[in-house]
Design a binder for these strands. Sequence first.
DNA 1: CGCGTTTGACCGGCGC
DNA 2: GCGCCGGTCAAACGCG
Length: 274
Amino acid sequence: MEFDTLLNTSLDLNVTPLGFPDERSALIDELNRISAENKRLTEMLIVVCENYNELQSRLMEYKTNNPSMDNTAASRKRKTEINGSASESSSSDEESCKKLNEEHIKAKISRVFVQTQASDTSLIVKDGYQWRKYGQKVTRDNPCPRAYFKCSHAPTCPVKKKVQRCSEDQSVLVATYEGEHNHPHTSKLEMTSGSNRCMTLSSVPCSNSLSSSQRSITLDLTEQKMSYDARNSNGEVHTPEFQQFLVEQMASSLTEDPNFKSALAAAISGKFLH
DNA sequence: CGCGTTTGACCGGCGC
DNA sequence: GCGCCGGTCAAACGCG
């Protein structure tokens, strides 16, 4: 894992030139301890994902047995559409469920939290797609203006996004995506360059922020997906192996953070040099 | 001159 | 029915 590389690097840069055997052994112990902790955290994350998967399966089972289960998370608008189609249509319950699922897919919503620099006043979230801004509005619940974007890469792409600064922490951008892209990323490099980077977690039906410096977490707020299945940008369903990979990526992405590296190197060198 | 952004006007849904 | 509010439109504007 890159964590080891990082630690070896800090060892070479900060400690080895001093050449104290005690410090080296202490550092190695520390490295082993941190590596073990890293491994333990990774395993915990896997367990959490498995538990979530199990819960989702139970929910799916419950919903299957109770098809009339209310869709409480839907917006008022969605409720209106659902009621309207139900009253006008004579279709069966199964067809209604189908329609609901289709509408859910159409209305796929995900939310991204992006940590930006305090001096950065733009509402730009680099996510690998090209966006055209078509409006900006000050909303009631947040003094910061909300910007409205449409995907401009493909004329037929229905995806929209809203970007607004968090009212509590204005260094955090909240980007809300609606719909799914019908084309690939325009630039994968853009995903990992610039002032912010994105890491995506799908199918987590809650809102949360797990941002470290210049990093973001995507939380998919749609509820039509009944099992934990990590998807890539093309909507492909991934295997459990990929979930394992994703977990490892999440752990390793933390260690790739330059700020984290420098802070860790400083902490280690400071601990043993003072 | 073309393209993207800005910004005020407009529209539709919802609550009272 | 009216007002509020979020979302969208489109003309004006700026920049390369």
